[in-house]
Structure formats: structure tokens, C-alpha cells
């Protein structure tokens, strides 16, 4: 399966990575190369095999549904590129 320029543009947008129009052909070619490599997987007979969800058979632990942490907004915000009045600030989302 090879990736054309339109697919490369769509994947870049889905991944939220800006790619200049002139860079799309090279990107499409690289992604196609990687996908071709992956297509070897089609040779394997996987009928009746369950997809692996956990590499070691284990049940995820559960804990009581109670608040165990929190109450330090200033620390949470300390690395934000833009924080105002106790909130993360971003460009306007709704008009």
C-alpha cells in the first residue's frame, strides 16, 4: 500500500504536525517505504490468534475510588508556556 501526497497531508493533519506543501512528496515516499516493510506481516497466518493486550498475564490492580492526590495547582502550572489566573492559557477556541 503506498501513500500518496493527499494521504500524507491527511496523516500529518491528523497527527497535528504542520508539513510544508513542498515537503509532502518526500514524506509520502518515506512513509510508503516504511509501510512496505510492514507488509511482510501479511505473510503470517494469524487465523484464530487473539491480538496481544498484555505481555505478561496480569490483572490490572484496582484501588479505592477516592481522591489520593492533588491540591497543587501552582506546581501543575509551573511549566506552562502561558498560564493566567490559575489556568492554562491558549489562543481563542470559540468566537
Amino acid at each position: 500500500m503506498s501513500i500518496d501526497i493527499d494521504t500524507a497531508r491527511r496523516v500529518a493533519h491528523l497527527a497535528r504536525i504542520a508539513v510544508a506543501e513542498e515537503d509532502l512528496p518526500a514524506l509520502a515516499q518515506q512513509l510508503s517505504g516504511i509501510l512496505t516493510f510492514m507488509e511482510q506481516l501479511n505473510e503470517v497466518d494469524v487465523s484464530g490468534v487473539e491480538p496481544m493486550t498484555s505481555v505478561t498475564p496480569m490483572r490490572l490492580k484496582r484501588r479505592a475510588d477516592v481522591v489520593t492526590d492533588g491540591g497543587y495547582a501552582a506546581q501543575i502550572l509551573s511549566n506552562a508556556p502561558d498560564a493566567r489566573e490559575g489556568f492554562f492559557a491558549v489562543p481563542k477556541v470559540v468566537e
Partner: peptide
């Protein structure tokens, strides 16, 4: 076609 198939192959490798 890709992700689920790869996870099945992973089960076979294990």
C-alpha cells in the same frame, strides 16, 4: 490491517 495484525503476530512471537 496493521495494528491488530501486528498485535496478533506479537502473540505468536511470544
Amino acid at each position: 490491517a496493521y495494528y491488530n495484525r501486528a498485535r496478533k503476530v506479537r502473540a505468536l512471537i511470544k
